[in-house]
Design a protein around this nucleic acid. Sequence first.
DNA 1: GAATTTTACTTCAAATTTTGAAGTAAATTA
DNA 2: TAATTTACTTCAAAATTTGAAGTAAAATTC
Lengths: 189, 189
Amino acid sequence: MTQGLLHPSMGLEDAVLLRNGSDRLHVAPDEPRRDENSDGPQVSCFDLARLLERSSRRFSGLIGAELTRRGVDDIGPAQVMVLLAIGDTEVSVGELLDRGNYVGSNISYYLKQLTDGDYIERVTSQRDRRSARIRLTERGRQLCADLRDAAKAFERSFCVEQDLRDLATAFQALHRLELMWANAARYGV
Amino acid sequence: MTQGLLHPSMGLEDAVLLRNGSDRLHVAPDEPRRDENSDGPQVSCFDLARLLERSSRRFSGLIGAELTRRGVDDIGPAQVMVLLAIGDTEVSVGELLDRGNYVGSNISYYLKQLTDGDYIERVTSQRDRRSARIRLTERGRQLCADLRDAAKAFERSFCVEQDLRDLATAFQALHRLELMWANAARYGV
DNA sequence: GAATTTTACTTCAAATTTTGAAGTAAATTA
DNA sequence: TAATTTACTTCAAAATTTGAAGTAAAATTC
């Protein structure tokens, strides 16, 4: 169902050797337990949520490293995520709040840094002068493009066709789950 | 492929009404663009990573709310994630680091809080007296059990069979991606 | 059309979380 | 037995997140 997300040249054996403690060369410790009389493993919200967190941290680390490599030191991974959330279009702060499920004051803080670093520019909307319209500057656009290139290169060297389909599958399933969580939050449980 | 993650009684229309701004009743703003001549949507690492972040935040919010409901106010969602990472077994700090991709000093900080709140207990291993063995106390176990019950109840009322399979699918695909990211970090790009 | 309410943000200060550079003490290796 | 490595902890600084005001511009109500 979900084969081949690892490059042929890189087996699971390598993959799990993430720390090299003497007696901790264990396999990934959080495989959800298999249900004896079923054909798929049981996965709880919690299993998944932990995986989400861990993956996010992992990804942030990667972005951070990439920023360092590029000599970008005025913003970090968190700010990059905001840049990516903005994308190619012009958005309002409110839209960003939705997109990332951010808190208002938090986004304000990031946007200030991004403005200071000249990654975005803000124009107050003519239609509604309360609302700030945000768009990437050339610098912001360039950084995003560079990161996208790096990601593409990564995908090319590590992913096979099936991986990309799996990515899409994971995305869709997660997206739906996220909507459920959002509704749970709204309607209380 | 991935149908039914929403309860029949709750349509997409409701699902996206997450904020009630006057002119921002838009549909989810980050659908990945469809590639004209392909049968599945193109999803980049970044699309997925943003979804991971957002979902995590959403989930943390849910856990936070649940803690408040239960009158637990000495720990937050982040600490709960550590409890869940510990699980039913006795683990070392190093194992936790792997499990959550945490930073050492960070876990130390959480463990201290959890010890203070009597959610976990630490015993120095006899075999290797440098290494702390951690396990849940009755209180920690109870909290986890309660949360699991709440999650089960949520799943029962909001998920159909297909949803649970999708959860498993998402988990597997993500897990593999995470391994790739981990290796990318290790081997540099 | 003036007063009120709501929306769309921003600011600030406090709390929380994360990081990194030491440190400690126990194993391991040379 | 000395040097190194491992498995953590501590501390202080930095980054992030939160929440309670605040501001100013719509939109609504009277």
